[in-house]
């Protein structure tokens, strides 16, 4: 037991001490709950605000966002607010009549209808009573899926679909849960990284890291999962990626393919387990930040 390192909890260091202070202040308003944003009655009330005594008051702590006459406050951290077309990773919590309930980090459970997924045997197959009985064979409680948001209901609940070969049940890999606001919106959220693993960056903050599949057509939105053992080098890459993502999240850097690849490359000089130490995280992410800034020019 010589190599075991024991640490006591320590006060978190202020992260932004080293960063230029002015960056956050120039022209952007930060508000806390109860702050009056404006007394002008001409503005429209958006998310994160409410009307009190004919004043527009913030109800969350965050950044004021003005679009013409609409005033919103964006909170730093919230649960996931679904938008049509988003890619999400979720976990099945319940099997019901013709639908699955899916936990997607939103306020209410999402639904995946039996009719909005590809079943084996062609696109245009009628969903029969047998299909309904066999629902648990396709997806069980606890299974992870990737899906796309098909519709958002009026109460904010989300309806999902997996009508593409890209989506479906997830087999072997690692799930990392982060704040949805840290996932950058991009054209594609499925990435095959050059380091030998793939990631799905769900818009809901669920990130799935898995070994890059051998043949592309094999994944085929299927509900058959490949349970062959993953070779050790692949597993090491996956755990390193996971620790890199945790480091990026701890230092509040947006997550997208480039930032993850850069962080992975910066981390190569450290052991995988050392990446969980606060000072190593800081160093690695600082290098990543630097490279991203150079890239932007």
């Amino acid at each position: 037991m010589a190599g075991v390192e024991v640490r006591l909890p320590a006060a978190r260091e202020r992260l932004a001490q080293g960063l230029p202070r002015g960056a956050g202040e120039g022209g952007r308003d930060l508000v806390a709950p109860g702050d009056t944003i404006t007394t002008d009655p001409g503005y429209m009330r958006g998310h994160g605000t409410y009307m009190g005594n004919e004043k527009l008051v913030a109800s969350v702590a965050g950044v004021v966002d003005r679009v013409n006459k609409l005033v919103c406050v964006k909170a730093l951290k919230t649960r996931y607010n679904g938008e049509v077309g988003d890619i999400v990773v979720g976990r099945i919590t319940e099997v019901q009549q013709k639908r699955w309930k899916v936990e997607t980090n939103s306020r209410l459970d999402s639904v995946l209808l039996l009719s909005s997924m590809n079943l084996p045997g062609g696109e245009l197959r009628r969903r029969s009573a047998e299909d309904e009985l066999a629902m648990r064979d396709y997806l069980q409680e606890g299974d992870l899926i990737s899906a796309e948001v098909q519709a958002v209901f009026s109460d904010g609940a989300v309806s999902l679909h997996t009508r593409s070969l890209k989506y479906g049940k997830l087999a072997q890999g690692v799930l990392v849960q982060v704040s949805p606001s840290l996932v950058k919106r991009q054209k594609t959220h499925f990435h095959d990284l050059p380091c030998g693993a793939s990631v799905i960056l769900g818009n809901n903050g669920f990130i799935w890291i898995y070994p890059t599949p051998g043949q592309k057509d094999e994944e085929a939105g299927g509900f058959v999962t490949n349970l062959e053992p993953v070779p050790l080098p692949d597993r090491e890459v996956i755990s390193r990626l996971r620790n890199c993502i945790l480091a990026l999240v701890a230092q509040k850097l947006m997550l997208y393919d480039t930032s993850i690849v850069y962080c992975y490359e910066a981390s190569l000089s450290h052991q995988i387990k050392d990446l969980l130490k606060a000072e190593v995280m800081e160093e690695v992410v600082l290098q990543t930040r630097q490279r991203l800034l150079e890239l932007e020019g």
Binding site: A16, L19, R21, A61, L76, K252, L253
Partner: peptide
């Protein structure tokens, strides 16, 4: 405390 945290995180996110 809330304002310091806000400032810190918005500066880091650099949006």
């Amino acid at each position: 405390v809330v304002r310091e945290h806000l400032q810190e995180v918005t500066a880091l996110l650099g949006k």
